[in-house]
Amino acid sequence: MHKFPYEIDQTEFKGRRVLVTGGTKGMGQAILHRLHNAGATVASTARSAPVEHPGLFIPADISTAEGTAKIVDTVIGELGGIDILINNVGGSVAPGGGALGLSDEDWAYSLNTNLMAAVRLDRGFLPGMIDRQDGVILHISSIQRRLPLFEATLAYASAKAALSTYSKGLAKEMGPKGIRVNTISPGFIETTAATNLINRLATQDGCSADEARDKLMQSLGGIPIGRPGRPDEVAELAAFLTSNRAMSIHGADYTIDGGTVPTV
């Protein structure tokens, strides 16, 4: 069970049905456990099943239309719909080499994973939310929507920028129908995957893990608080934005990056 360094109201999300995509690792796992610990009925999806998982799990490739259709059908069949949708899945597997190193396939993968997965799931669950005049959608974007890195993640950054723009437009449409839509844009969050990357870089460069972490932070221009963020910190922001404590927060994009983005 995920541990949180603060007391949680175990009834805050009682009666609320939540789907977190990519809820088996990193930020998604932290968000899933945070809401589960607060009383939510939770479901998540990923390509492979986790060792331990609360609630409903649907194995699916979210980057495909078939995968998202399977998720929608299963969740509606098992839970009757959802009240909170957290589109967390994202990432890049593109090679280095900048813009000219990216193929059509690299662009298609980034767009399908980081944009179209959310679009398709929103489209699948919104009719039920509209019928109930109630629902919350949270999109996990990235600071790369404003601070793109070109070496290997230009397609990823572009897709996340599109996700943020889509989220704002969706918020304008859905607000009058009782559905809140917000976005979180994390910076460098030290997930298990990030820790593994740090260790690989340390081995590759013959330096300590702390030195490798510092090099990664400097590649972003530095992090003023002096460290990457933690998954549980993102989870706490997600819990606030999807709760009734944030009823008037709508169409917003919250950056959580330790001060990395240097502009207003």
Rank of each mutant, 00 (worst) to 15 (best):
Q218D: 14
A65L: 07
P262I: 02
L35Q: 07
M247I: 11
A246I: 11
D131H: 02
A252D: 09
I225K: 07
E236C: 03
K14C: 04
T21S: 12
P176H: 11
K160I: 11
I71N: 01
S141Q: 04
F4Q: 00
L19G: 00
Q144E: 15
N182E: 13
R16Y: 09
M27A: 08
L79T: 02
A30S: 14
A49P: 12
T11C: 00
G128Q: 11
I198S: 00
L149P: 07
A99I: 15
T260A: 14
Y109H: 10
S158I: 08
L115V: 03
L197R: 10
A159L: 13
R200V: 10
D9E: 03
D61T: 02
M27G: 03
G251H: 14
R213V: 11
N199S: 12
G226N: 10
A155C: 14
E173F: 03
L170M: 12
G97Y: 14
L154C: 14
M174W: 09
G221R: 04
G259S: 10
I31S: 07
G55F: 12
R213G: 08
V89K: 03
G135H: 04
M27N: 11
I143Q: 06
G23T: 11
R230S: 03
I223D: 02
S44D: 09
K215C: 09
P262Q: 03
T24A: 06
E211P: 05
I143E: 10
L147D: 10
N182W: 09
Y6K: 00
R17L: 12
A40N: 04
T255R: 06
G251K: 08
A43W: 06
L111D: 03
G28S: 14
A162R: 01
H33T: 04
N244H: 12
T260C: 14
I140L: 15
A157D: 07
T255M: 09
A43C: 13
T183Q: 06
Y254V: 13
Y254F: 15
R132L: 09
A152F: 13
T195D: 13
I249Q: 12
N182A: 15
F188L: 15
A49R: 15
D253S: 12
L126Y: 01
H139S: 11
G97R: 10
R230G: 01
K177D: 08
G169I: 00
G251E: 05
G22V: 09
A46C: 10
G135T: 01
G226D: 08
A193T: 11
A65C: 03
V261N: 08
T21P: 03
Y6G: 00
P50K: 05
S208T: 15
G39D: 01
I184G: 06
L138R: 07
I249P: 05
A69W: 02
L237M: 10
E7P: 00
I137E: 02
D106N: 15
A157P: 09
K70M: 08
G259D: 07
I225S: 05
N37L: 11
G128C: 01
K168W: 13
A155N: 07
R200E: 14
G124V: 02
D73S: 09
I225M: 13
H36T: 01
S103W: 10
V18I: 09
P231W: 11
M116P: 00
G259Q: 06
A69M: 01
